[in-house]
């Protein structure tokens, strides 16, 4: 069951071209939880003076991880779309270190999934960023239906 779930989760991320472009890797997945890491890359630097990764790349990681947590929720649909995402940046990520995001889908209704996420570098006690988001959940998940 859990192996199958990890396999599904890996397929989920491998199917996302932008997750591949950012070299994201699945670390772990549970029922409504996901953990994804993104290695440091000079292409992702937002502040050339310090070498710190751009907040946008952290957002992309958090969004992917949040979506993965929703898709891994028991009884979840095969896909999801972000309705709203808020990110708080606590401190710059240390240059050179891999960033790992951990997301939990802590509540679902028939149509909405609520997610919390945190982004960490090697110093696991001081988060780089936190996020809260709402994602689509259920049959009408495909944003294509929202024309």
């Amino acid at each position: 069951m859990s192996l199958q779930r990890i396999d599904l989760a890996k397929k989920f991320i491998e199917a996302i071209p932008h997750a591949r472009a950012l070299k994201m890797n699945f670390v772990a997945v549970g029922e409504g939880t996901a953990e994804i890491e993104m290695p440091y890359d000079e292409k992702l630097v937002g502040d050339p003076a310090t070498g710190v990764i751009h907040g946008g790349a952290v957002s992309a990681l958090m969004d992917t991880c949040g979506g993965a947590a929703v898709v891994s929720h028991p009884g979840a649909p095969l896909g999801t779309a972000t309705i709203d995402l808020r990110i708080d940046y606590m401190r710059p990520a240390t240059p050179g270190q891999t960033i790992v995001a951990k997301a939990t889908c802590y509540h679902v209704t028939r149509s909405v999934a609520f997610v919390r996420a945190v982004a960490l570098d090697d110093d696991r006690d001081r988060p780089v960023a936190t996020a809260t988001g709402a994602f689509t959940y259920g049959a009408a998940t495909s944003e294509g239906g929202k024309k």
Binding site: P17, H18, A21, T64, S142, E143, G144
Partner: peptide
């Protein structure tokens, strides 16, 4: 490489 959902396809939310 900006795509997040290849089925639609749609730009990645991130």
């Amino acid at each position: 490489m900006l795509i997040g959902d290849p089925r639609l396809p749609a730009i990645h939310g991130g």
